[in-house]
Design a binder for these strands. Structure first.
Lengths: 220, 220
DNA sequence: TGACAAAGATAACGGTGTTAAGTAAAGTAT
DNA sequence: ATACTTTACTTAACACCGTTATCTTTGTCA
């Protein structure tokens, strides 16, 4: 009996720990399912056609259940944007590693930036146009340092600056000018109907060409 | 009888026309009041805090009355954007006339563009970020040719091109590159919290400087 | 004065985000 | 095994939204 109870106790404890971990894992799974459904609905229908009720229906839950896994609609959108920032950071990181030349590197980053924007319009809109505040919002889950896309760009420009490949002055000015250029091109492509995506490569080439000519100019 | 009826008919027609004109004028006045209220509410609370019920309440009408003067919410927003485009076009026109030098002219246009964007953020967001399709939507009232801001920019660049002051090639590429640059700077300033408006002039100077260095470069 | 058209208001439908209260199941301790 | 508690989820409801259909009022004209 004592032996039995002992066995049962240990097994119960193990089960409790196991079940606690499993509960946590199950909770994470449901959260992930909700997030995937939300991402899908958002990528398909954009911000306007994105509703909590729609997300819930997709997973077979009630609408209010979403509030058990996310603070509110904005929190869910932020989670979606985090996935976007993750992808975006990896794309920039890959571009960064394609070449060792500081100037070519910046060009690769610019092209990767634009390519991501037009390839993931819903994500890009959310991250940089509709919810710009997400850029500076700190990740509460704090899991991954959300591969710092901005940091990659800053580093690349600093390296080109240190190598004397760009005009003297505050390198951050170059960062913002470059960012403005690529963001402007992406944003206009996504928003303005007259700028079809067909001639985007021409405009990309021209923009980067002009920017680099301006960047490269030596002191005045 | 025929004479009398004739006289009565003409007077009746005149009266009808007169009263018809006044009715039309009154209708235009109410429409204008609604539009002003809508603009105010929109400029104060942005697109999210903008509702037909709010507009109606501001004028003391019922919400459904708005539909007697505007097709729907989007039509009302479009009317607001038309006012914005009017102001915007005039600002660019003024900038165009500040100087006769083709290159300086483009610089003045760029600065006017950015100045308008940060001075009228709600209008700018609506016109170029949230409802970019309004750019190419034709004005149904067809009253004013909505002073063509884009045309002014295109003309300025063509003139600089014709004067041999910018790099050879398709001038429209320069137009889009310039547009991307200034729009990018405005859009980031409006959306990204880390880009406070304090250093905007520095960034503006730097952006235009880089762009013009790139523009001015002669053939390769 | 009576017919008619215009202007406006009410009521309602289906949709939204969000909160409060209820329910059924699972876990836990005695 | 039973009683208590926590968890997961649902239903009901509130306040808002855009939009439409159906009144009621008002003014114009013969």
């Amino acid at each position: 009996m004592d032996v039995m109870s002992d066995v049962k106790a240990t097994r119960a404890t193990r089960l409790r720990e196991k079940s606690g971990a499993r509960r946590q894992q199950q909770k994470a799974e449901v959260r992930r399912a909700l997030l995937d459904a939300a991402s899908g609905l958002f990528l398909e229908h954009g911000l306007t056609g994105f509703s909590l009720r729609g997300v819930a229906e997709r997973v077979g839950y009630s609408a209010t259940t979403v509030y058990l896994y996310f603070e509110n609609k904005d929190d869910l959108l932020f989670a979606i944007s985090l996935d976007g920032f993750e992808q975006f950071g990896q794309a920039l990181q890959t571009a960064y590693e394609t070449t060792a030349d500081p100037v070519e590197r910046i060009g690769a980053l610019g092209r990767a930036y634009i390519a991501f924007g037009v390839a993931h319009p819903a994500h890009y809109r959310l991250m940089f146009m509709e919810r710009g505040e997400f850029l500076t919002k700190t990740n509460p889950h704090d899991q991954k340092p959300t591969s710092d896309a901005f940091g990659i760009l800053v580093r690349a420009v600093h390296e080109a600056h240190a190598a004397g490949r760009v005009r003297p002055g505050n390198p951050m000015d170059l960062v913002y000018t470059l960012w403005a250029g690529v963001h402007g091109l992406v944003a206009l492509t996504l928003c303005v109907p007259m700028l079809n995506e067909a001639d985007l490569t021409i405009r990309t080439d021209h923009l980067l060409d002009v920017l680099f000519s301006g960047f490269a100019e030596k002191a005045r």
